[in-house]
Simulated assay, not measured.
Amino acid sequence: MVRRWVKAYKELGAVGIQRKRQNTVYSTQFKLNAVNLYLTSEKSYRELAHELGMNNPPLLTRWVSNYRKKGEFAFSNVQGRPRKESELLEISIKKAKDVVNETEQELARLQNDNLNLRMEVEYLK
């Protein structure tokens, strides 16, 4: 542990060994860039983490592992419990009703246009 602190101090200075009161939140793009850098370079997790200014190399290891398992969807920020099938069914029914509603409205508009065009043709005759 002390060796890790010494390395962190040498590479990042006093900031590298300071205890943080709050976890750092990294953006999805930052995570993808860090993973791509690791996969394309021959650097170790520790070297790359220090290069990116991270003092937690195991976090980079977890990102790479998740990326290998799930691909780009590994970093989607979906939180909370997954929806139940009944909720998904209700949502799909609502969407289907909206589509039917829009289709009925479009059909009514087209029938109205058709009626207007027939009246025009009859008038011109």
Rank of each mutant, 00 (worst) to 15 (best):
N33G: 05
E11G: 10
P82R: 04
K43S: 06
L37D: 05
R3C: 07
E85L: 05
K97I: 13
K94L: 12
R68P: 05
I17V: 06
L32G: 03
T40E: 10
N77R: 12
I91D: 10
A74D: 02
E102R: 12
K95S: 11
S41G: 07
E11P: 05
R19T: 11
K94C: 11
V64C: 00
R3G: 06
L117S: 13
N77Q: 12
N55G: 10
R109D: 15
K7A: 06
L12F: 06
R62C: 08
H50C: 09
M54A: 04
V121K: 13
S41R: 07
A14W: 10
L52C: 02
G53P: 01
I91S: 11
V64Y: 00
R68I: 09
I93P: 08
Y45E: 02
L39K: 00
E104T: 15
L88F: 03
Q18D: 09
Y9E: 12
R109C: 15
V99A: 11
S86R: 06
S27G: 06
Q79C: 11
W5G: 11
S76Y: 13
Y45K: 01
V78G: 05
L48K: 06
N55C: 11
S65C: 08
P82C: 08
F73G: 14
W63H: 03
E122N: 12
T28P: 01
Y26M: 02
K70L: 14
V15R: 12
E106K: 14
L60P: 00
L117D: 13
S76P: 11
G80Y: 01
